[in-house]
């Protein structure tokens, strides 16, 4: 492996798998930053478990992306040798951990979507994606449950926790719209039955959110302006720093086996 960026041929199917792989890796990486620093030991365990599920999903999706690309890229080249402009993840997942409330709200927004998404993807006409979906759906369902329980406790806990979790909801809300967006390449895959239309999930996603948010005595923002760009490599400033850490070994010692 050289330390220069790899070239990627983003065919629609390859790009589709790559985007989901990037989501899983970046969110898994963020959660792994908590390991050793969580509010209680039990939560160190829980966050690490979620991170490990996501890193596992990323590896399968990168493997499939590389396979459908048909060049000599592999999971590690895709993860370690693309620059910020080549990363295709949602803006939501690259947002910094912030306090525990921000981490949990980010997880809640994402997992509420991922749970619905993977469940639908189980009937994808693409056998590999359907298999990845079957495994990921069970994982996402648990992530959603865990995050939901925390949102309820933080929202209906103390004044301070209520304030913090509401602030996190307000901060992260604008990054949720991107989950439901579709471009032309994806539209063709949806048409072919390989992908599903995420737009159809939005109603159910909102219901999941509202149930928890209501019980937590919190509220969703009225502001419906949504940030976009992650899927096309236009990221927040945070991703570059994450990648400089994630990729430091491969960039410093090009082409070695570890």
């Amino acid at each position: 492996m050289s330390c220069a960026n790899i070239q990627v041929s983003e065919t629609p199917l390859m790009l589709y798998a790559l985007r989901r792989a990037d989501d899983a890796l970046i969110l898994g990486h963020r959660l792994s930053e908590w390991c050793g620093h969580a509010p209680i030991l039990e939560e160190d365990m829980a966050l690490s478990n979620i991170a490990l599920d996501l890193i596992g999903q990323a590896r399968e999706l990168y493997g499939y992306a590389a396979k459908s690309e048909g060049r000599d890229n592999d999971e590690d080249k895709l993860a370690y040798l693309r620059d910020v402009r080549q990363y295709r993840n949602l803006l939501l997942v690259e947002q910094p951990n912030g306090d525990f409330a921000h981490t949990m709200v980010r997880q809640f927004f994402y997992s509420a979507f991922a749970d619905l998404y993977w469940r639908e993807m189980m009937s994808s006409r693409d056998a590999t994606l359907a298999a990845i979906a079957a495994k990921s759906e069970k994982e996402s369902a648990y992530h959603l449950r865990h995050a939901s329980e925390w949102i309820i406790r933080l929202g209906d806990g103390t004044d301070e926790s209520h304030r913090r979790v509401q602030a996190a909801i307000d901060d992260l809300w604008a990054f949720t719209g991107e989950m439901f967006a579709v471009d032309d390449g994806e539209r063709a895959l949806i048409h072919a039955g390989v992908a599903i239309d995420p737009g159809t999930l939005r109603g159910r996603w909102l219901t999941t959110l509202s149930d928890v948010i209501d019980e937590a005595t919190l509220s969703l923002p009225q502001n419906d302006w949504m940030q976009q760009g992650g899927r096309a490599g236009r990221h927040s400033e945070h991703l570059g720093h994450l990648l400089s850490e994630l990729q430091s070994m491969q960039r410093t010692f090009p082409g070695l086996t570890w």
């Binding site: 039990e42 365990m45 829980a46 478990n49 648990y142 449950r145 865990h146 329980e149 406790r153």
Partner: peptide, 8 residues
């Protein structure tokens, strides 16, 4: 939370 922690 105890049940979830036990699982984790």
């Amino acid at each position: 939370m105890a049940l979830q922690a036990a699982r984790d």
